[in-house]
Computed example of a mutant assay.
Amino acid sequence: MVLFRPLCKYVARVERLRDIVPTVREAIKAAKSGCPGPVFVEFPVDVLYPYELVVKEIGFNPNAKGFIQKALNFYLRCHVSRQFGNAWLQQTITPLPTNVPMPKSEQIQEIVQLVKSAKRPVLLIGSQATLPPVKPSDLVKAVEALGCPVFLGGMARGLLGKDHPLQMRQVRKDALKDADLTILAGTVCDFRLSYGRTLSKKSKIVALNRNYSQLTKNEKAFWNSNVSVQADVATSLVQVANSLGSNHSKPTEWVKTLREKDDEKEAANAKKMEQKLSNGFLNPLNFLKTLDQSLPDDAILVADGGDFVGSAAYIVRPRGPLQWLDPGAFGTLGVWWRFCSRCQTVYPKRPVYIIWGDGSCGYSLMEYDTFARHK
């Protein structure tokens, strides 16, 4: 249990059968509240066996004569009574309400004023923006209402579809350098943003995140926020968009400038994709380009790897929201087969593609045997 506490939001051990339902309800609530994360519930083996088997195997001595044997029988009866007592009483099994932090109206108004005064805003959207309660379609409308250039990361990839005019892919560094307002919508200032050092010192910064630790990561060391809001990311963006109204002046010239730079970078990358490698091996960039051109609109992409997936993130374009799954920032390789099997279970008629790096392959190649045995 000590091993799991630093890694999990909730850790518990079930010692009585009547505690199974309330413990699992609390675990699910903890997993889904705030910033979703892992929980751990231990079920000791003695709560998994039926009553009759436990009574039979626990070691009662029906012919106990001495004090010690009778005392042991008494202890064992008390243990069984405690373990199974009230186990069959009716219990509430409906999910407990989750706790999702919401923005305050004054925080939203602060952000609105910054957006109105900005000439070169940039919006960085991370995985948290895809979480309920806001639907992806409503988030897309909010992003379009803001009208600023967007960079997507993590599971937010695909939010705007394949070729949305606001989404940029190749010029994030240039955009952050010239921006006068940077909105970190679920994006964390870790190694992916050089711990915040890529953010312009001249830019106003708005940080939105459900988790306080992620919200303030490396702040004061390499960057400083003007507005920090610990709240649901998508809800915050929707409220900002609604407060701006239909008369909001969108930075169309700024979007046009970045679009031209992004297209130039895309063209330069396209030339690299066509190059033949001197060793005669397959050009991975060309392969990813070919894959992108052949993807159906309902494809679900499971990207599991390191450098190969890093390249795929800039070349392969998910066709819609929640159609990109990857191991996350810490490179927990080998998750592809779990993602794929669950995706195929939920969407049996949709194609699921694996973008698979060699490291992940080394961790989990044997899972093909699992698929073969359980197909």
Results as ranks from 00 to 15, higher is better:
251 P>M: 05
232 D>T: 01
239 Q>T: 06
223 W>T: 04
261 K>I: 00
255 V>Y: 02
246 S>V: 01
251 P>Y: 03
219 E>L: 08
247 N>F: 00
233 V>T: 00
263 D>S: 14
220 K>G: 03
237 L>S: 10
251 P>C: 03
234 A>D: 02
218 N>H: 13
265 K>V: 02
265 K>I: 00
216 T>V: 13
224 N>L: 08
264 E>W: 10
237 L>H: 01
233 V>S: 07
263 D>C: 04
249 S>H: 13
255 V>A: 00
215 L>T: 08
264 E>S: 13
262 D>N: 11
261 K>D: 04
249 S>I: 11
256 K>A: 11
251 P>H: 01
238 V>H: 07
260 E>I: 08
219 E>P: 07
245 G>A: 09
241 A>H: 02
232 D>L: 10
214 Q>E: 14
252 T>P: 02
216 T>E: 10
262 D>S: 04
215 L>I: 03
255 V>T: 08
228 S>Y: 00
220 K>Q: 13
220 K>C: 05
217 K>V: 11
217 K>A: 13
220 K>D: 11
247 N>M: 07
252 T>A: 12
240 V>A: 07
237 L>E: 05
263 D>Q: 15
232 D>I: 06
216 T>L: 09
252 T>E: 10
262 D>T: 01
242 N>T: 05
226 N>W: 06
229 V>L: 11
235 T>E: 15
258 L>S: 05
258 L>E: 02
242 N>Y: 01
265 K>S: 10
260 E>Y: 01
217 K>Y: 09
211 N>C: 12
208 L>D: 01
257 T>E: 14
215 L>Q: 07
219 E>K: 14
231 A>D: 09
234 A>R: 10
237 L>D: 04
220 K>L: 12
243 S>G: 06
225 S>G: 15
258 L>Y: 06
260 E>L: 12
228 S>T: 11
265 K>A: 06
259 R>F: 02
253 E>F: 00
262 D>M: 03
258 L>D: 03
223 W>R: 13
263 D>H: 13
226 N>H: 15
225 S>Q: 09
216 T>G: 06
226 N>Y: 06
216 T>K: 12
246 S>Y: 05
237 L>T: 09
259 R>N: 15
259 R>Q: 14
244 L>W: 05
222 F>Y: 15
229 V>F: 05
235 T>F: 10
211 N>W: 10
226 N>L: 03
236 S>C: 11
247 N>G: 04
219 E>I: 06
242 N>L: 14
227 V>R: 04
231 A>R: 10
261 K>L: 12
213 S>Q: 10
249 S>M: 12
221 A>T: 12
232 D>C: 08
211 N>I: 01
226 N>G: 14
249 S>Q: 15
216 T>C: 08
237 L>R: 00
263 D>R: 15
234 A>Q: 07
220 K>N: 11
236 S>E: 05
244 L>C: 14
225 S>M: 01
246 S>K: 12
242 N>W: 02
244 L>D: 09
213 S>V: 12
257 T>Q: 15
231 A>M: 13
211 N>T: 01
243 S>W: 04
256 K>W: 00
245 G>P: 06
250 K>V: 04
